[in-house]
C-alpha cells in the first residue's frame, strides 16, 4: 500500500538523519585514523585519510541536496523546518571536521621519515575527547536531548585547556632546541585542528538545542 504524503515525509526526514549519522561516523573514523597514523608514523594511513576526504565532501553535498529538495517540495514548518535547518548546519560542520582530519593527514605526510619529536600522549587524548564530544552531540541529535547537548558545550573547555597545555609544552621544546621547531610546529597544527574539531562538535550541540527548543543557546 502506498504511504500517505505525511508518512513519506517522515520517512525522508528519518532517512536524512541517518545520512547525517553516516557522515558523522565517517568523520569520526577519519579523525581517529589521522591521529593514530601521526602517532604511529603510518604514512599509508595518512595518505588514505587525505584521499578519503573526497567521500566526506560528497556525502555533505548529498545531504544538502536532499535538504533543499525537501524544503522545496514540502515547505516544512515548525519541527520539520528546524530539523532540516539543523541537518544542513550539522552537515557543514561535519564536513569541516573532515577537513581537519585531512589536514592532520597532511601533517603526517609532512613529518614523513623525520624522527619523532616525542611520544604523542596529550594529542591523542585531545583527539579522544573531541571525538567523544562529536559522538555525544550526535547522540543528543538522535535522542533530541538538550541535557546531552549542554554537556557537550561544557566539555569544550576541557579540550581548550588541554590544547593550552600542549601549546605551552611545544613552545618550550622549541625554545630549548631550535632543531625541533619544524616538527613542533607540525604538532601544534595538529593540536589546533583537534581544538577546532571540538568547537565544531559544540556547533552541532547548539543545533540540537535549536532543533529541540527553537532557540539558539546563549
Amino acid at each position: 500500500m502506498a504511504r500517505s504524503p505525511r508518512a513519506e515525509f517522515d520517512a525522508e526526514l528519518t532517512g536524512l538523519q541517518n545520512e547525517v549519522l553516516v557522515l558523522g561516523s565517517m568523520v569520526e573514523k577519519a579523525i581517529a585514523k589521522s591521529i593514530e597514523a601521526l602517532r604511529t608514523r603510518n604514512l599509508d594511513d595518512s595518505r588514505e585519510v587525505v584521499a578519503e576526504d573526497d567521500l566526506i565532501d560528497d556525502k555533505r553535498h548529498e545531504i544538502e541536496d536532499k535538504c533543499i529538495a525537501l524544503i522545496a517540495r514540502q515547505q516544512p514548518m515548525a519541527t520539520d523546518l528546524r530539523q532540516i535547518v539543523a541537518f544542513l548546519h550539522i552537515a557543514v560542520d561535519l564536513e569541516r571536521m573532515g577537513d581537519y582530519a585531512e589536514g592532520i593527514g597532511k601533517i603526517g605526510l609532512l613529518m614523513g621519515e623525520q624522527p619523532p619529536l616525542k611520544p604523542l600522549i596529550d594529542i591523542p587524548r585531545m583527539c579522544e575527547m573531541a571525538n567523544d564530544m562529536l559522538r555525544r552531540s550526535l547522540d543528543g541529535l538522535v535522542k533530541r536531548d538538550v541535557v546531552i547537548a549542554n554537556q557537550v558545550l561544557k566539555d569544550d573547555d576541557e579540550v581548550d585547556a588541554l590544547y593550552d597545555q600542549v601549546y605551552r609544552e611545544l613552545v618550550l621544546l622549541m625554545v630549548q632546541d631550535p632543531k625541533t621547531i619544524e616538527r613542533a610546529t607540525f604538532l601544534l597544527w595538529a593540536a589546533h585542528d583537534l581544538e577546532r574539531v571540538a568547537d565544531r562538535a559544540e556547533n552541532i550541540a547548539e543545533q540540537v538545542i535549536y532543533l529541540v527548543s527553537g532557540r539558539e543557546p546563549r
Binding site: P5, R6, P76, M77, A78, T79, G214
Partner: peptide, 17 residues
C-alpha cells in the same frame, strides 16, 4: 513563532500536517 516554534503540540501537529 507560530510557524517556526509553536508552543502548543496541537499547533505543531496541525501546521506540520
Amino acid at each position: 513563532n507560530i510557524f517556526q516554534n509553536p508552543k502548543d503540540e496541537r499547533t505543531e501537529a496541525y501546521i506540520t500536517g
